[in-house]
Simulated scan of single mutants.
Amino acid sequence: MWRRLAQILGLLLCIMGWGLVGCTLAMDHWRVAQLGGQAGSSVVVTAWYWSDLWKDCYEDSTALVNCVDFGVLWTVKSYIQAVRGLLIIGLCLGLIGTALAFFGMECTHIGGDQRSNDTVLTTASAFHLLACVSDVAGYCLYINRVVTAFLHSKADPSKLSYEIGPPLYLGLVGSFLIFLGCMIHCATAYRVNRTQRGKEEEKDVLRGKKHTHRRSERSNGSQSSSTYKVASVVIV
């Protein structure tokens, strides 16, 4: 019973993390920069510059937003293309891993025997782990660019000082949930295989003891028969 509950929990964590990573692709404010907002006049003017994977935007204090979509694929910056590709690859691998995990779970009764289900579940965990690595690599690449630009802006005050936005934190949390789910699946498969091996070894030991006991009984029986024959010969 505990194994089924653990597998269901792992699948829910993987699906939740996969959904969070997918949501970050469509979210705004991947990086945010703020200008103004300081007192000193009768009107406080504030402006925000923010970007995501698809556009750059400007928003003023009147909530007026002007956005410029990125052009065709080959005109976008290389690191943004890399982040898009890594996240999409992670989503595809996570989808395959979710399907395999659904077929490899014990409660679905779709796969074959228990050993084949454990193999399918371990394969699903491998796909989820690769998806997690791909997602984390994409987020870390974007964070590295934002931090580099932030440090350059400190050296040059004329440049905008961007900060990390909420989608990056949400994506990292989703990646951690995927990692936690695949670890739970691996733990359930490994523990069951270990207990099965222990039971098989115990059975082998018991079989060996039975064989040795039978052999000893046969040897004792043969010895008693031989002594009986010798005794009968002596009496005759």
Rank of each mutant, 00 (worst) to 15 (best):
A33I: 00
Q223F: 09
L25F: 10
W50D: 14
C132P: 04
F150Y: 14
E200N: 14
F103M: 13
A126F: 08
L129Q: 05
A101F: 00
K77H: 06
G174E: 08
A33F: 01
S224V: 14
A189D: 05
F179I: 10
S232N: 14
G10Y: 00
G221D: 12
L86R: 08
D156M: 01
L53M: 10
L91I: 03
C140V: 11
A231I: 03
M105V: 09
L73N: 10
D52W: 07
V173L: 13
Y162E: 05
E200Q: 15
E163C: 03
A155W: 07
M183T: 13
L121T: 12
G97D: 01
K77A: 11
Q38K: 13
G90K: 00
Y58E: 13
A149V: 06
L9P: 00
Q34F: 05
Y49V: 09
R84Q: 10
H213G: 11
G221F: 04
S134N: 12
V45Q: 08
A82E: 08
L12P: 01
L13E: 03
Y169I: 04
L95E: 04
I178M: 14
C23M: 14
F102T: 13
V68L: 12
S161A: 12
T24F: 11
C92F: 01
V173A: 15
C107N: 07
K199W: 06
V83M: 11
L53D: 08
R194S: 11
M16W: 11
L100P: 01
V173Y: 03
D118K: 04
V44C: 08
D60E: 00
L86H: 10
V65P: 05
G138K: 04
V230S: 15
T62G: 05
G40W: 00
Y58S: 12
A137N: 06
C92P: 00
G181Q: 08
Y49C: 04
Q196M: 11
T75H: 09
D60A: 09
L25Y: 12
V146I: 15
D60G: 07
A126W: 05
E217Y: 01
L170S: 02
K159G: 01
D28Q: 14
E201C: 06
C14E: 04
Q7W: 01
A33E: 02
C67P: 00
M183V: 10
